[in-house]
Computed example of a mutant assay.
Amino acid sequence: MTEPIVVVGAALLDADHLLAARRSAPPELAGRWELPGGKVEPGETPQAALARELREELGVEVEVGERIPGEWPLRSPYVLQVWTAKLFPASPDPKPLQDHDDLRWLTREHLWDVPWLDQDVEAVREVEGRL
């Protein structure tokens, strides 16, 4: 049996807001919202991968926090793990540089105003209690 490949997602928090990113590609995911992140490369820790992915995708520098309990299956052999993160004070504001065409900071009362990707729904429910 193949070892799962970990995909890390960021519960990027700013006070009582969570950052959501709208996918622009691939076509089957375009227009749906997700927690930004990406694949952990060989020899990389999940935390280092998350910081790298957010730098590449959003142009930000973050401090990775704690892992959100749970692991969610994606298309085999991938699994999603979510970590909290916050912007470093000197970091620029996030911009949709890769794979996304829009970003929104959502409060708890507006968390479900966007159509989340199916695989992110359970993770967002876990994060909801932290807002």
Rank of each mutant, 00 (worst) to 15 (best):
T2Y: 09
T2C: 12
E3A: 15
V6Q: 01
V6C: 02
L12P: 07
L13K: 06
A15R: 15
A15F: 04
D16T: 09
H17M: 08
S24E: 11
A25F: 09
P26W: 06
P26L: 04
P27L: 12
E28K: 12
L29R: 14
A30K: 13
A30H: 11
A30N: 12
R32K: 09
W33C: 09
E34Y: 03
L35V: 01
P36K: 03
P36E: 10
G37M: 12
P42H: 11
T45Y: 03
Q47K: 05
Q47M: 01
A48H: 09
E53Y: 02
L54M: 08
R55K: 14
L58K: 03
E61L: 13
V62K: 10
I68W: 00
P69V: 01
G70T: 00
E71M: 14
W72I: 04
L74D: 11
S76G: 08
Y78T: 03
V79E: 14
V79Y: 05
Q81A: 06
Q81I: 08
W83H: 15
A85H: 13
L87C: 07
L87M: 12
P92H: 12
P92A: 07
P92N: 00
P92L: 01
D93E: 15
K95H: 08
L97S: 04
H100N: 15
D101C: 07
D101F: 08
R104W: 10
L106H: 10
E109P: 12
W112N: 13
D113A: 11
D113P: 08
V114F: 07
P115W: 00
P115C: 00
L117T: 14
D118G: 10
Q119T: 13
D120H: 15
V121N: 01
E122N: 03
A123S: 12
V124G: 07
V124F: 04
V127M: 00
E128F: 00
G129H: 02
G129L: 02
L131R: 04
